[in-house]
């Protein structure tokens, strides 16, 4: 199963619930070689070059030549092949985050955990990074679990959106809703169906979206009309 997951809420930090985590049927170890994580901050080691930072992600015991080839390939994938010998403080936030992504991919993870990876980037860089992540996912098809507060980001990237929320009386977060987006990527950022999902997600998150009362009905009507005219045009 190769799917991208996204959940627009933070996992409850500190308060642990009960349950089991497993990848492919076998339970997950505290530090599992089958998974890799990239954080909200790049967390690159400032004294290492970009190449040497990405090398840190390679699984233990990787042969030197294989490792170098793999790192070069990943840096090309995240479009950093021009900056390999720079230090983290010499590059921008977006570049650092791409290096962090390459470092996570170097582990060849079965599950890639991205904890608000684009949260600290400016709005435009964030959109570029989302497209880049889709390219990376196409080249390295792994399961991605992406945590985000950005509803649009979830709609743009995810196969399945798991909406988390917390009740006041119980510690930690619980699953509120699981939504299948069911659209092929890359997705039209102005897609009407996504707009409907967006309205639904925002209202579930308790954000007033200022839509008119019959917004959903209107949107669905408009879509039906468009589909009808498209079939008409087809015949």
């Amino acid at each position: 199963m190769r799917q991208v997951h996204a959940a627009p809420a933070r996992l409850g930090a500190g308060s642990r619930g009960r349950g089991e985590l497993s990848i492919g049927g076998s339970p997950v170890a505290p530090v599992d070689q089958r998974s890799a994580v990239a954080f909200q901050e790049p967390r690159l080691l400032p004294w290492r070059t970009i190449t040497r930072n990405v090398e840190l992600g390679l699984p233990r015991g990787t042969a030197k030549q294989d490792g170098q080839a793999r790192v070069a390939e990943l840096l090309r994938l995240v479009q950093l092949d021009h900056a390999t010998s720079l230090r983290p403080r010499q590059i921008s936030g977006g570049m650092a985050q791409r290096a962090s992504l390459a470092r996570a991919l170097a582990r060849n993870p079965g599950v890639l955990l991205l904890d608000e990876p684009f949260g600290a980037l400016d709005a435009l860089t964030r959109l570029t990074m989302q497209d880049l992540l889709l390219d990376v996912h196409a080249a390295e098809p792994t399961t991605i679990l992406l945590v985000t507060h950005d509803v649009d980001e979830a709609l743009q990237l995810a196969d399945r959106i798991v909406l988390l929320g917390s009740d006041d009386d119980t510690p930690g977060a619980t699953i509120r809703r699981v939504l299948e987006v069911g659209k092929k990527r890359p997705r039209d950022r102005g897609d009407a169906q996504l707009a409907i999902l967006r309205a639904e997600l925002l209202s579930l998150l308790g954000v007033e979206n200022h839509h008119p009362e019959d917004y959903l009905t209107q949107a669905i009507k408009a879509q039906r009309a468009r589909r009808a005219s498209a079939t008409a045009a087809g015949t």
Binding site: Q90, I91, S92, G94, D122
Partner: peptide, 13 residues
């Protein structure tokens, strides 16, 4: 011009 700043390498000299 709207270009994402992260493609320019700001090498601090």
């Amino acid at each position: 011009s709207l270009s994402s700043s992260d493609f320019g390498t700001a090498v601090v000299e």
